[in-house]
């Protein structure tokens, strides 16, 4: 509820801005793009996997947003609208280049005993190896590499939520999903990421 209120206020504050966008006032466009552009480009880069393609994706998507801005109905923030546009264009690109990976199984399915829901004895290593790496730069690199290797459906929620720091409402609007659905997707994405990171750390 607090989130909704915040958004109502933000939407009211953004009315002038939206008017400016729809009228095509260059300074308003410049302002909106300067504010959101770097985040959108970072998101796109990590969605498609390389800078040059990401630049094309963002260019295309933003020009497209500019040309169809009259379709913006104000039911979400302009930020969500922009992310949605970049995301859809990035997914076209991912499909075209076959970087599209099925989301696979939920790793947590294998961790617990069915009858009492407790951890299975053999579920994973608890030798503390990972804990010794906690503060290292290498951990950071492994985490980011593994985010980049995730199936896109997991990658996109983590990029929006953790890396770009969008709030729940903004992500739900960008992905056109409910808050409950987002919560499940985030948890699943984190579980898959955790398994991948720990596997990668324990390999070495």
């Amino acid at each position: 509820m607090r989130v909704d209120e915040k958004h109502q206020i933000m939407t009211a504050e953004n009315n002038n801005q939206i008017e400016g966008l729809k009228k095509g006032v260059p300074s308003v466009w410049q302002e909106v793009l300067t504010l959101n552009g770097p985040g959108l480009l970072g998101y796109a880069t990590r969605m498609v996997g390389d800078k040059a393609t990401a630049e094309d994706v963002v260019q295309d998507a933003l020009v497209n947003v500019f040309r169809s801005i009259e379709k913006f109905d104000g039911r979400c923030t302009i930020k969500s609208w922009l992310y949605r546009a970049i995301r859809n264009r990035a997914i076209d690109e991912i499909r075209r280049r076959k970087r599209f990976i099925d989301i696979g199984d939920d790793p947590e399915n294998e961790y617990f005993e069915d009858h009492d829901g407790h951890w299975r004895e053999d579920c994973f290593e608890w030798d503390g190896h990972a804990a010794r790496e906690l503060d290292s730069k290498r951990l950071l690199k492994v985490v980011h590499d593994e985010i980049n290797n995730l199936p896109h459906a997991h990658r996109e929620v983590l990029l929006m939520k953790e890396v770009e720091g969008l709030d729940v409402k903004e992500i739900c609007d960008a992905l056109e999903i409910s808050a409950g659905n987002l919560r499940i997707r985030i948890h699943r994405a984190r579980s898959v990421l955790r398994a991948a990171v720990w596997q990668s750390l324990n390999k070495e």
Binding site: G42, L139, H144, E162, L193
Partner: peptide
Amino acid sequence: LKSASREPNPGELPADFDKVMGFVMDEV
């Protein structure tokens, strides 16, 4: 993992935003 995800990736240089911005503003 959550706090590591929020830190910038040490090995990654950002894409060229000025280039993209220039292109889009030209179109505008």
